[in-house]
Design a protein around this nucleic acid. Structure first.
Lengths: 163, 163
DNA sequence: ACCTACCGGTTGACGTGTCAATGATGCTAA
DNA sequence: TTAGCATCATTGACACGTCAACCGGTAGGT
């Protein structure tokens, strides 16, 4: 398992071979997991995970509507990304955009009935896929560990975000 | 931490709220980690992780060349994806393609000197980024756990791949 | 010989993501 | 007042990924 490397863990610049193997396995597997879920969602409901995130936010919003900027902040997207995505969703009839009465130059994003139905139909298979691909794959201990690992990685990302 | 849900863990169809929170945290954080590494590599060396994978494979290949199909199999990409990517890399002078002498209708992918230098310059900062963003973020136990989690998720992906 | 089926590789269409530039509109300070 | 300036949102250019269609050539069966 471990390697015959000189110690000095603190001063080392580069990952060891073991660490690198785990890194590759980890990042590739999580990426594969994400795209597998994406394709499950797609074939179950013709929605992407992006669509799902937008529809979820709108479904839970009061009046099933939000201003574009709020929506972007809520789901953690750049405005540009959201704008492109809303354009595609609008073409498919899942949402509508109209000028916002309260805020000047603001755009209100509305859930259409087609969008609400698409979301409703997607929820159950999506959650079931999460259970099958993630929850069922891991022991309860591993699920807890996964949460802690995610938290630690997130913390490090936040720390290094000051660059 | 835990929820006041009816037991019956075996028969449950959907993830609990706790499980769902961990899932979201996990998948979003790993995705963010991937894109952070992508942008580090980009700003350090003007390469994408795709470029890096291709250049790594070619660098380690005999004669710094491989047939397109072998290369695709080696890095686990679809042929179409590789073909598109090679087109972009060829435009940037990182690789060259020529007809393969031995295999009819085969395409040989060659590393150019520019490609070899780009890879050489990218390696160290890339490995350092992996250390900073992944290895340094976790305890040794967590790194081991991450490897086990990846293996378990991969196994489940493989099992469900018969559908 | 001919038809077919496969194989290696490319291409086109489209969805998705980032970055930088562009409107459009209100706010503030000379 | 008006010259900036920030803010909300969109747009265009491009990289990347998937899917399905395509092309050219070889191999097998009849």
């Amino acid at each position: 398992m471990t390697e015959a490397t000189p110690g000095r863990r603190g001063g080392r610049q580069l990952p060891t071979g073991d660490e690198l193997r785990i890194w590759r396995d980890f990042i590739e597997t999580t990426a594969a997991l994400g795209s597998r879920l994406e394709s499950r969602l797609q074939s179950d409901s013709s929605l992407s995970t992006g669509d799902y995130a937008v529809l979820l936010a709108l479904t839970e919003a009061e009046g099933q509507a939000m201003r574009s900027s709020e929506l972007a902040a809520h789901i953690g997207w750049e405005r540009s990304r959201l704008s492109h995505h809303l354009g595609r969703m609008e073409r498919r009839g899942l949402i509508r955009r109209q000028e916002c009465a309260t805020v000047p130059r603001g755009a209100e994003v509305l859930l259409t009935t087609a969008g609400a139905e698409a979301f409703k139909g997607a929820t159950f298979p999506h959650l079931r896929a999460i259970r099958e691909l993630f929850v069922d794959a891991l022991t309860p201990d591993q699920i807890v560990a996964a949460g802690e690992i995610a938290a630690a990685l997130r913390a490090q990302l936040d720390v290094l975000n000051r660059d």
